[in-house]
Design a protein around this nucleic acid. Structure first.
Lengths: 153, 153
DNA sequence: GAAAAGCCTAGTTGTATTATAGACTTTATT
DNA sequence: AATAAAGTCTATAATACAACTAGGCTTTTC
């Protein structure tokens, strides 16, 4: 039940972009190499991930000198579920309970298959969390926690 | 976020064994080839899986003619979480929130890492379901549903 | 026109999953 | 005692996928 590195890096990058305060600049842009440096990730690998996210409509970018990436929408309108699905595919642990990519799993009677019932619950529990947590929720939670712990950042 | 075939087959087999009514026999024994046939699985692959489950103490077996496998404990004392962990390892999507196999994941400040916070929630949600669902719960749920749908079996 | 950024696709490497094979042990039956 | 039916155990093949690496292309700014 693992999150892939693609998923992990992509989620981290998106959270970082949501965190980046937009000072004077019209757009809070962040560059691949900056993220790669801060997260200690291969820049080339991250590049692919951000490109995927961009092609999925979650990020926008600006080419050329002074360019970079920025969130396609306000951080409260982008959920972790959206990001996760783009990078790691369906949330469901087994295809026969997937909303995104249903496929029969070959049990004799799907309607009363016990495994399917339980895995359906698991799917829903995961999706509930990921689809109801926006990037804004994450950054808010982080800063609340930092304040509580008295950490400057 | 996928369940492996090992995990799927193992869980199915365990559910099937819990389902098998123990008629007169002292032990409700089931044979590899019977499970393989009913679930349309490679018998050799299933063999490895059941052996793993046996070595983990979840199954007992009897060798020789008329032998087979049976649950090591009553079905209400075996949880899906136990089975899952034996076959698929930790439930946590990311190591830094694993109870079973913690490992730092390399974020600058783990204590306030947003991804970690959310993945911790996901881990807990999954573990809550799997650790609180016993094989007996599954078979009960199946039979209730069958009755409700008027399916004989 | 050169440098700095992102865009895009293909290829490589390593590892885990899935499955297969086969020789061995135990038990029941005849 | 011999045979057949079952599980035990280990090795290995085949495949797939994840995680990267590489390199050329395009756009933008100065």
């Amino acid at each position: 039940m693992r999150l892939s590195k693609r998923g992990e890096y992509g989620l981290r990058a998106m959270i970082m972009m949501a965190e980046t305060p937009s000072p004077d600049a019209p757009l809070p842009m962040v560059q691949i190499k900056e993220i790669a440096l801060r997260e200690q990730i291969s820049a080339k690998f991250l590049e692919q991930i951000l490109l995927t996210l961009k092609n999925a409509g979650l990020l926008h970018s600006k080419m050329g000198v002074g360019g970079g990436y920025y969130l396609a929408r306000p951080s409260k309108e982008i959920t972790l579920g959206q990001i996760f699905r783009v990078l790691d595919g369906p949330v469901a642990p087994i295809k026969c309970v997937s909303q995104m990519a249903y496929e029969p799993c070959g049990c004799p009677d799907e309607q009363t298959c016990g495994l399917r019932l339980v895995m359906g619950d698991v799917r829903n529990a995961i999706a509930d969390i990921l689809d109801n947590t926006s990037l804004a929720d994450v950054t808010k939670r982080q800063s609340t926690l930092r304040k509580k712990l008295g950490i400057k950042s």
